[in-house]
Write a protein that binds this DNA or RNA. Structure first.
Length: 514
RNA sequence: GCCACGGUAGCUCAGUGGUAGAGCAACUGAUUCGUAAUCAGUAGGUCGAGAGUUCGAUUCUCUCUCGUGGCUCCA
């Protein structure tokens, strides 16, 4: 590379006809290039670029001369399937990047380093939040006490919001008779990612890969009336899906996870407003978690699907109407719907600009049909309800991983596993530290004391590294005055105040979820 | 699942065909300290697992397993 750059060769564009190009690459023995050329529409020109001896097929554009490349670096290499098809040949792919100055390259590498520093797998270890281990098997998460504290805060908020939002909370088992999945049709579509059945008294039972059939069974326990709708049933439901070993990734892709699932059963005429309400709910919840940038996609009918044209048409237009009624900008994702209906996906943008798919809202007319759901309508006839599947956070594991990266481990106080750490300056003030600790705990603050035999600087460093939002420093001065010295992780030294003032400061931050 | 690369102390990592070392953490002692690392000592490892080659394997070979980067996939 260095030599090519040094020679400062001009890079020349060469257009050629299809036949010339095919002949050229056939001579070179490059069967893949020949295949690409054959796929280029006749209306488009075929171009090659050349510098020195090197000639290759490329659409361009290129820099004018090789000397323009002042800095480059190879980043990684990996194998890829030809045309992304695992049944076809494999190619070795080399990833690299080039810049017009060494400084730009260094900045780029610095940004990568920063992204690495907020990697949830690294922080999960450093902050003692979660782990996975060989002894358990891949893709299965152990939530450590500190991770579990955060998860509990998320769940508490989630439940509270759902109850306020007109949902009922339900619970369902982790396994069920496999027939449920035969009826639902999931076995036909997703058998490969479902775990093998287990034999219980001669019946096949199945570890659940989703929660919907359970909610449907609750629906079926009564004869429903049009007056009952909408029924909104939500569950933090833990599901298990077999993910291929190569796709597992920290918390973002796992084999056992908890969906913040809900199913809304409603009438035709309620569909649009229900969807709109879910959209509002999604944005307001995400805002509380610190996300304000969104990308919205409407996914339409895929190649493999069930249901009638009329149903798809109706559901898709209801989703569209809901988006438009809320003046939400969205893009159409053609053919990316689920086999049973169209969907809206919401991606959130994190603080360094990466988009994460979390929320999904899916219309389903397959399951009501397959499970023969019905209700008594106002004219006394039996009708089929519409079902909406929705998850706001998606999976708690994944969402948690995204949160860790978004905040780089420095959680807002309401989520922080340790909200305040009380630090003693000397052994003499330990009893005072304990009274402060009790006061904070009594107000529901997640506080802990550091009375170890270390210097103040060292204890502060340790609290800083653990990203504790507040450090409460107690020395003889504070003990004498009955006050505390407050240091905020974000704002630094806040000075000395009476304990009650600190308590109202931190508790208001916690209740307001700032 | 596929390709490539990895797994050494709790963590971050050196190292070697003759069974291993550092820093931090832990523990013990001294110190009682004012806003990002006090000092000293102690302990800690079947070198991911199994098999093979070898007089001898943590080191070489194979299989498995877990992880990492990609590909494909994600109800």
């Amino acid at each position: 590379m260095g030599e090519i750059v040094k020679k400062n060769l001009p890079i020349e564009k060469k257009e050629m006809t299809r036949d010339q190009a095919i002949q050229l690459f056939q001579q070179k023995g490059e069967k893949f290039k020949v295949e690409i050329i054959q796929d280029i529409p006749a209306s488009e020109a075929i171009t090659c670029f050349q510098h020195g001896e090197w000639l290759d097929l490329c659409k361009g554009p290129h820099v004018e001369r090789t000397g323009e490349i002042k800095a480059f670096k190879l980043l990684s290499s990996a194998s890829a399937y030809w045309r992304g098809d695992e049944k076809r040949d494999r190619l070795q792919r080399i990833y690299g990047t080039a810049f017009t100055s060494q400084k730009d390259l260094e900045e780029f590498l610095e940004r990568r380093k920063q992204a690495e520093a907020r990697d949830h797998r690294k922080l999960g270890k450093e902050l003692d939040l979660f782990s996975t281990m060989e002894e358990l098997g891949p893709g299965l998460i152990l939530w450590h006490p500190k991770g579990a504290r955060i998860r509990k805060s998320i769940e508490d908020f989630w439940r509270e919001s759902h109850v306020k939002g007109g949902y009922e909370i339900v619970y369902t088992p982790h396994i069920a008779n496999r027939d449920l999945w035969k009826t639902s049709g999931h076995l036909d579509f997703y058998q490969d990612s479902m775990y093998s059945p287990m034999d219980l008294d001669g019946q096949d039972y199945q570890l659940k890969p989703m929660n919907c059939p359970f909610h449907i069974q609750i629906f079926k326990t009564q004869l429903r009336s049009y007056r009952d709708f909408p029924l909104r049933w939500a569950e933090l439901g833990t599901v298990y899906r077999y993910e291929r070993s190569g796709v597992l990734h920290g918390l973002l892709r796992v084999r056992g996870f908890t969906q913040d699932d809900a199913h809304i059963f409603c009438r035709d005429d309620q569909l649009e407003s229900e969807v709109a309400q879910v959209l509002d709910f999604t944005f307001s919840m995400m805002k509380t978690f610190g996300f304000s940038d969104f990308e919205v996609y409407l996914s339409t009918r895929p190649e493999k699907f069930v249901g009638t044209d009329a149903n798809w048409e109706h559901a898709t237009s209801a989703l569209k109407q809901a988006l438009e009624s809320r003046k939400i900008k969205y893009e159409i994702d053609p053919g990316e719907g689920v086999f049973y209906g169209p969907k809206i996906d919401v991606k959130i943008r994190d603080v360094i600009g990466r988009a994460w798919q979390c929320s999904t809202i899916q219309v389903d007319f397959n399951l009501p049909n397959r499970f023969e759901l019905e209700y008594v309508s106002d004219d006394g006839t039996r009708k089929q309800p519409i079902m909406v599947h929705r998850a706001l956070l998606g999976s708690l594991e994944r969402f948690f991983g995204v949160l860790v990266e978004h905040y780089a481990g420095l959680f807002p106080t309401w989520l922080a596993p340790v909200q305040a750490r009380i630090i003693s300056i000397s052994e003499k003030v330990v009893p005072y530290v304990e009274t402060i600790l009790e006061k904070l705990k009594a107000q529901g603050v997640r506080a802990e004391a550091d009375v170890s035999n270390e210097k103040l600087g060292s204890k502060i460093r340790s609290a800083e590294l653990q990203k504790v939002p507040y450090m409460i420093i107690c020395g003889q001065k504070e003990a004498d005055q009955g006050k505390v010295s407050v240091r905020s992780k974000k704002k630094g030294d806040l000075g000395v105040m009476v304990v009650e003032d600190f308590i109202s400061l931190i508790t208001s931050e916690i209740t307001n979820k700032n």
